[in-house]
């Protein structure tokens, strides 16, 4: 009892109520360093890109940059980027979902699951340049598989062309971070499938097929589509792996932007690089936005 009474009349009490008036203004001060930092290093560069897309080299307003995007090499780069992203998203989603399933039916705290999840995290988020070199070591001109096939099977991987450094090669490399990303994104959805649903299907006479066709499948469709969009956005934004592999030419949009930053720019077109950036942001935002909508739908079931 004696211990309780003093606490309520401690100095902390009055000062707190006294500070209440000032607190609303003062309390924003605590958030200020964060807001200032993010304002300078995230919001400002973003605005610079978005605003620059609508300016000519003298700073006057123009739609010219955006209309240029719909022509020639830039349009082609966008089409190639979308194709590459869509194709690798599809491959990644299918094989990633299978791998996630193979992991999900195992022990939840098992070693296999830990290894697969950790390795997926590495490849999906931090692969970048090392992934490009992994490929040179495997199927590059002097790669392990290239040499093995040439010496033992008599197949020359590069008989047709230097495909590793063009779109087919990029497709192959991209699956190495797309499949792992799918594992990370899709695993929670699979974990959300309750064993009781399977048991209920079985006790009503349903087979494994009935379960996937009428219960598990329909529940997994929204998260699968959401993951597909996320994978698309991921491949679309990826730069490091492609930049390390392709040093000549700019088949995809991120490499086009590299050209503008490293000085291969026609005079008077400086802001075209920003317009390319705006185009990327728009496409990524659409994919992410639809993904958020699908996730809301999913959260009704999984959890």
């Amino acid at each position: 009892m004696t211990a309780v009474a003093p606490i309520s009349t401690k100095p902390g009490g009055p000062t707190k109520s006294g500070a209440a008036g000032r607190s609303s203004a003062l309390s924003y001060l605590v958030a200020l360093p964060f807001l200032v930092f993010v304002g300078i290093f995230l919001v400002y560069p973003t605005i610079l890109v978005l605003a620059g897309s609508f300016q000519d080299s003298s700073g006057a307003f123009t739609f010219q940059n955006l209309t240029d995007l719909t022509k020639g090499v830039y349009l082609q780069a966008f089409i190639r980027s979308v194709e590459l992203s869509a194709l690798t998203a599809l491959i990644g989603a299918v094989f990633g979902a299978l791998l996630a399933w193979a992991v999900a039916v195992g022990k939840p705290e098992g070693l296999l699951r830990r290894i697969v999840v950790a390795a997926s995290g590495v490849l999906a988020q931090f692969g970048g340049v090392p992934l490009a070199f992994a490929f040179l070591a495997t199927v590059g001109f002097q790669g392990f598989v290239t040499q093995f096939l040439r010496d033992n099977v008599g197949i020359d991987l590069f008989a047709g062309s230097a495909w590793l450094f063009e779109l087919p090669g990029l497709t192959l490399v991209y699956t190495f971070f797309q499949i792992p990303l799918m594992v990370i994104v899709f695993l929670p959805a699979l974990d959300g499938l309750r064993p009781q649903w399977r048991e209920a299907t079985a006790s009503l006479g349903g087979t494994s097929w009935t379960y996937w066709r009428h219960v598990g499948g329909p529940i997994l469709v929204p998260p699968f589509l959401g993951a597909l969009l996320l994978l698309f956005a991921n491949a679309f934004s990826a730069y490091a792996t492609a930049a390390a592999l392709v040093s000549q030419g700019s088949p995809i949009v991120p490499l086009q932007i590299r050209g503008f930053l490293t000085g291969e720019v026609v005079l008077g077109q400086e802001n075209l690089g920003k317009a390319l950036g705006l185009g990327m942001v728009v496409i990524v935002s659409i994919a992410m936005g639809v993904n958020v909508l699908l996730q809301r739908r999913m959260s009704k079931w999984v959890r």
Binding site: P45, P254, M280
Partner: peptide, 11 residues
């Protein structure tokens, strides 16, 4: 939503 390659243009 903003790819690093776009962010670096503004940075």
């Amino acid at each position: 939503a903003i790819p690093a390659i776009v962010l670096v243009v503004g940075m």
